[in-house]
Design a protein around this nucleic acid. Structure first.
Lengths: 263, 263
DNA sequence: CGCGCTATTGATGACGCTCAAGACCCGTGG
DNA sequence: CCACGGGTCTTGAGCGTCATCAATAGCGCG
């Protein structure tokens, strides 16, 4: 037996709530527009109601709750999810520093999902009323909101494709590659990082059981694709992961080689 | 053997491209805002570039194509879907009279999915540039766009929950109930209607195989839940369909009865 | 120090996919 | 007019993937 390392890294291994540089923040354009437009730095202070810190597991907002604040993540990590009355959970996404939360509820003033910190997380809390006021006045801000909502729809579509058409291996590979990209965008290592979410969360995101996540991690590790020590992940063979994520690993690869591609 | 009716209704059985009343159109608020704001009915004419008709199977726009028009469906039906390079398809949604298509691409000016008519379909084609111009000038229009995009995100979330956490029976039951609601909103019969999409489309929407869709339709019919003659559907027992859609039919029902509910 | 949470691994079986075949409907061309 | 092919729908047989149940172990926290 391959004898994988079993030591558990403490859950607090992540760098936690260090505020990011504003220039890397997803709300940068928004904030800068505000500032440039008005030339009034104090406006920022008035818009950003307060900076708040959530501990692991704490709730930023719940489903059905009325929308009062938009949250800008400064550091840490958050998951958003919907759930049914019988306790089933579907994680919609994992969010890290620089992302905005709550915008998707701007249409009906009511949160349609729940947001919960998966690690120590600090956020900027922004009043929705002011936010909208500003959007009405400044087309640039309005457009930023469109862009963010569009991106959210695109993300949902990708996830739907993943859940509807791909098996467990493909889902997990795609998930890891996605994370990798996400970190790269924030100027962190694309091949070595810490997961802020549990195996169970990953399963609830990818629509597979917690145990299946474990098993696939173990198999990927045995195959030399990744090194996973609990929540510390290292991607050893990104290319092969990409193959797994796109095609179906073995059978279809043969088919593709043997077939003449047609539009 | 229960001997289900086998006769196929012609695909052209649907009422096809009769334009809906503007007051039932999803763009009604939008159009009215325009009109009231400017008092200029001719503006509508300038915004709505032209009214166009697509035949079954024709493409309104493709993935990756640059966004030029928003489409308002006047009559007929459209499916939107994303696909992978190896030909797998995930249907994102089915759309009928009164809905707007293309808005989700407003953030990056590039369509992130494909839209294809599933029956004879007539649409209003609206220039995006003018549309945005108007949104910049009129907060009411801006807000309408937010609302529509929010609704789209909510819909994706529901579908994700369905694909991630529910079995094939539950998915199909939920699908039928959803359709029922959709028709009810448009003042059509909630219990008897024609499907505009094929079994294969339904499968591609719900993340199950075409054959599985057939089998479940057959079983639902044998159980007296629905009458399905090819594309003509009649819901005979909405309540039981709802039970199937929410809970898991048998095992969990027993569990729920026997357990004390807790928050 | 013990309880609870997370992660891991094994055994088992069911759900749903795949392949295959046939029926029916439609449009097209001989 | 009829024959034909292509598309849609249906049903059967067989098997693989993955969920479920169960047991164990490590770590965090009170």
């Amino acid at each position: 037996m391959p004898e994988r390392a079993l030591k558990m890294l403490p859950l607090t291994a992540e760098p936690a709530g260090v505020p990011i540089d504003c220039r890397n923040c997803g709300a940068y354009q928004l904030c800068m527009s505000l500032w440039l437009k008005t030339g009034d730095a104090s406006l920022l202070e008035r818009v950003v109601k307060k900076k708040q810190v959530f501990k692991r597991g704490e709730v930023l907002y719940r489903m059905g709750q009325s929308l009062e604040y938009i949250y800008v993540i400064r550091g840490g990590s958050v998951k958003t999810c919907v759930s049914t009355e019988d306790g089933q959970v579907q994680v919609m996404g994992f969010h890290i520093a620089g992302e905005l939360l709550g915008l998707n509820a701007i249409g009906n003033r009511q949160h349609n999902c729940e947001a919960r910190a998966t690690g120590v997380t600090s956020v900027c809390e922004v009043s929705v009323d002011r936010f909208e006021e500003l959007a009405r006045e400044d087309p640039a801000i309005q457009y930023e909101i469109f862009k963010i909502m569009s991106a959210e729809i695109r993300h949902s579509q990708e996830l739907l494709l993943l859940l509807g058409k791909h098996n467990a291996d493909e889902r997990l590979a795609a998930f890891l590659l996605n994370l990798s990209q996400q970190f790269a965008q924030r100027h962190c290592s694309a091949t070595e990082f810490n997961l802020s979410m549990s195996r169970s969360d990953i399963g609830d995101y990818l629509g597979i059981a917690e145990e299946t996540v474990c098993r696939i991690f173990a198999r990927f590790q045995d195959d030399g694709l990744v090194s996973s020590e609990c929540r510390h992940i290292k991607l050893n063979d990104v290319e092969r992961l990409q193959q797994i994520a796109c095609h179906r690993p073995s059978r279809d690869l043969r088919n593709i080689v043997g077939s003449d591609l047609k539009a």
